[in-house]
């Protein structure tokens, strides 16, 4: 019997949300192929997190333990996965499209020489997909700005599941606990050559951009570093955070940590106010999870208007202060 193996990341004894999304994706395929889903977990709290996975369709959980695996080490995690593959001979290995999930799977791909598809959103004809045939997958390019249909071959097939491609399943009540298999992989010094050797806490007292309910964004139209004063004022009136386009960070007006988009932060606020931003695809992929977008732009044909819920046509330098003044006047 074969299986789909999924690498499950976890913290404080509970699986991460992106890993649960990946398991929902794997469980659907597993049902169609009539094969079980196995999970692989590494590190402190792995056994506790593994115990909760029955409700997410996991039949067997492989818990990887090793005295030298106290800190995250991508190549060593891949070595652990290799041993699971050796004993389970799965048809596919999945990971979340997270930083670590992607990195570990790429290490596995490099070690095995197998192809790997990052950020898969669908296996479109999954009902007709067989364990041994070719798999047709759809994956994200350009951070989701473009999609690619491709053949993914190799045994096992290696893929990461794009963030938010599927929702996590509600845990099934009364599901059996997965069978737990403990594994201590043979690790070489090279497997542990790169690992986390320290941590630095950030001072973060500001509203985090990724979690902010309101984001006030500024682009080239703001015109200068000083111009961001009015956006900070509006953001503080709304209890929100300031975000920017790449033009702004490239000009050195604002730090890169505020950049929204393909090579910056992905935001998902209730409201995104995009001021003097044209709406390039690489910016849009970072803000398309916003519930509503208010675009303030002097160009009525700017691409951002096709994505926006609301728009004001005009110069940001007069519109933004007028909005702030109106809030103050009416509160």
């Amino acid at each position: 019997m074969s299986a789909i193996v999924g690498l499950v990341e976890h913290a404080d004894g509970a699986p991460d949300r992106l890993s649960l999304e990946m398991l929902a994706f794997a469980a659907r395929l597993g049902r169609d192929l009539v094969i079980p889903v196995h999970a692989v977990l590494v590190g402190d709290g792995a056994a506790a997190a593994a115990a909760s996975l029955g409700g997410h369709g996991v039949a067997v959980a492989h818990v990887i333990q090793h005295p030298r695996l106290d800190a995250y080490a991508p190549a060593a995690w891949a070595a652990g996965l290799m041993e699971v593959i050796g004993s389970v001979t799965p048809v596919a290995v999945f990971a979340a499209g997270s930083e670590r999930g992607t990195e570990v799977l790429a290490h596995l791909a490099a070690r095995t020489g197998l192809p790997m598809a990052a950020n898969v959103i669908d296996v479109p004809d999954h009902a007709a997909t067989t364990s041994t045939g070719r798999w047709r997958i759809v994956r994200q390019r350009w951070a989701g700005g473009l999609l690619e249909e491709a053949w993914l071959d190799g045994l096992p097939r290696l893929m990461t599941v794009a963030a938010h491609a599927v929702a996590p399943n509600e845990p099934a009540v009364g599901a059996a606990r997965p069978e737990i298999v403990h594994l201590t992989p043979a690790l070489t010094d090279n497997d542990l050559r790169v690992r986390v050797t320290g941590r630095v806490q950030s001072a973060g007292d500001k509203v985090s951009l990724a979690d902010a309910r309101v984001v006030v964004g500024g682009g080239r139209g703001i015109g200068s570093a000083e111009g961001f004063g009015m956006l900070e004022d509006l953001a503080s009136l709304l209890g929100g955070a300031v975000g920017v386009s790449r033009v702004v960070t490239s000009a050195g007006w604002r730090p890169h940590s505020e950049q929204i988009g393909q090579t910056g932060v992905r935001i998902a606020p209730d409201l995104y106010i995009a001021c003097g931003i044209s709406g390039a695809i690489q910016h849009i992929v970072g803000c398309k999870s916003a519930k509503r977008i208010l675009a303030i732009n002097k160009d009525p044909d700017a691409p951002i208007l096709r994505r926006a819920t609301y728009a004001v046509i005009g110069d940001v330098h007069t519109v933004v202060p007028a909005i702030a003044a109106e809030i103050r006047r009416t509160s």
Partner: peptide, 14 residues
């Protein structure tokens, strides 16, 4: 997009 207005006069509707 729903156009809320043009220039600073749009502020009350915003």
């Amino acid at each position: 997009a729903e156009i809320l207005g043009t220039g600073p006069d749009a502020a009350p509707r915003v």
